[in-house]
Design a protein around this nucleic acid. Sequence first.
DNA 1: TACAATTCAATTGTGCACAACTTGCCTAGT
DNA 2: ACTAGGCAAGTTGTGCACAATTGAATTGTA
Lengths: 144, 144
Amino acid sequence: MTEAPRLDRQVCFALYSASRAATAVYRPVLEDLGLTYPQYLVMLVLWESEPKGVKELGEELGLDSGTLSPLLKRLEAMGLVERRRSGEDERRVAVHLTPAGRSLSSKANAIPGHLAEAAGLSADELEQLRTTLERLTEALHRAH
Amino acid sequence: MTEAPRLDRQVCFALYSASRAATAVYRPVLEDLGLTYPQYLVMLVLWESEPKGVKELGEELGLDSGTLSPLLKRLEAMGLVERRRSGEDERRVAVHLTPAGRSLSSKANAIPGHLAEAAGLSADELEQLRTTLERLTEALHRAH
DNA sequence: TACAATTCAATTGTGCACAACTTGCCTAGT
DNA sequence: ACTAGGCAAGTTGTGCACAATTGAATTGTA
């Protein structure tokens, strides 16, 4: 007879807990910017390069239009982005930063430091954790 | 002038992605049992020891009554658990397994193997990842 | 050139997370 | 015994995730 799997042995639960704990650390910091964590992710992508289509954003973040459409609508309501139907291809929506959205980036620079500080791991360990997680995510996507 | 942080450097995003990828691998397997991942977590805890109060469940999983109350109501509607108001302390609700809930455990035994198989990491690497994540979660909770 | 298949974004519906609040119950201090 | 404080579970409201569907625009192809 096989034993029921134990909660405290599960990598998946460890991931789930760590992910929620990490966004919980980010939450009060992001609150100062008026952003949720997924909204912050979208802004990060746009600060690197814009405009971007909804689909491209989704590919970079692993989110679909069902998540992004309302999220972008909220960012637009906050005045951080603008959505314009593309001229060449009327199906596409280009997401642009507004000046307010662009200037928010400077206030966001200090954010990643907070996690590093709270993590209780060395920079090396964090770096190794990150690459292990990326390999894992890759493999899981292939399996899925 | 400081650079905006890059998405691909963020441990937090790596956690967020890996966690979603892992539950995505679990999803079709759990669907055979009719459970979502958080529901499965609650069942895991109960299979180890029951009955449990809502608060105890919440402490083990890091969830509050706002999440658990409706989740437990759904598990009860499926006939997997029963909620009984405690006699000694009328504030408490004891969550019991039904026979159906208990017998589901045997069907769930094979589940953790799926992740290990899809992970693309060795057993050692998975084990090390798990302990690193647990340390991280601990530290983040202290910071929060 | 028609028109079937595909693509993109949005919408609908379900189920978490989590903050803030409510309600009923218990307990400690007077 | 009375009551202030605290506690447990539930409720409300917002915002993700994600599956499934819709509708409009484009592309490929006979």
